[in-house]
Design a binder for these strands. Structure first.
Lengths: 121, 121
DNA sequence: ACAAGTGTATTAAATGTCTTAATACACTAA
DNA sequence: TTAGTGTATTAAGACATTTAATACACTTGT
């Protein structure tokens, strides 16, 4: 389901959260679906349960999942996270474009890059 | 010349390197121009000389500056870094746009975002 | 009621990176 | 010669991350 990069500089808990978030955003994990338990996923990924716990806590904080004590973690309805996801990725896009612009790339070239990625459907 | 964010999670040496890189990319620091000495910049930024040293080492590694022992650090010719910088930022832009697209953002909205950032000159 | 599985919380220790500090050395320029 | 330069090393501290070992409350199925 998920593969972590232990050489990556980024914290493991963030990697776990982001990968699950992507699966949810793409619909690979449908709303209502149950996620692996903290302990099970920890074993699967070869990390400590605390690490998975932090990832799940972050996902709940952002509205991607709903936690029910004693039962498990479940993917939330799209309405709970779609708006914040939009805001997040658009904000990230702005930051990236700022860097692109600072690097001296012309507007047209940046636009062309965006168009090309969208072409590939 | 440069202001660091001491609350930022990113290492200070990386922040220094990136900010100088941006100044070079924008032409605020012209090729051949001399950069502040390791010790002087360290005092200006209120960091340790070792931190500036690491930033300069990284910049030389990437071809942005040329170091001459006993003399100082000088901005390299554009031909030494322009291509790799372009490739780097455009590659980063592609990755970001992929995430934006995966999140369900329409092409026009992404394009509008890029346009808006470029408008702010 | 019981057992197993769940999320949650806490504390301690280990680890690794970043940063500072204090030096020291070789080189360059005036 | 002197001051300023880049470079290198070692030690120490701060900090975040991760692991480990528990413990507790809740839910489910028997």
């Amino acid at each position: 389901m998920i593969v972590l990069d232990f050489r990556d500089k980024r914290p493991l808990n963030e990697q776990v959260a982001e990968k699950i978030m992507n699966l949810i955003a793409q619909g690979a994990l449908a709303p209502g679906e149950r996620l692996p338990s903290v302990r099970n996923l920890a074993v699967d990924l070869s990390v400590n349960p605390n690490t998975v716990q932090r990832a799940y806590a972050a996902l709940e904080e952002k509205g991607y999942i709903t936690t029910i004590t004693g039962r498990g973690n479940y993917v939330s309805e799209e309405s709970n996270w779609k708006d914040s996801l939009y805001g997040e990725v658009l904000s990230e896009l702005k930051e990236t474009v700022k860097r692109v612009m600072a690097a001296g790339v012309e507007r047209e070239e940046a636009m062309k890059c965006v168009r090309e990625v969208y072409e590939r459907d």
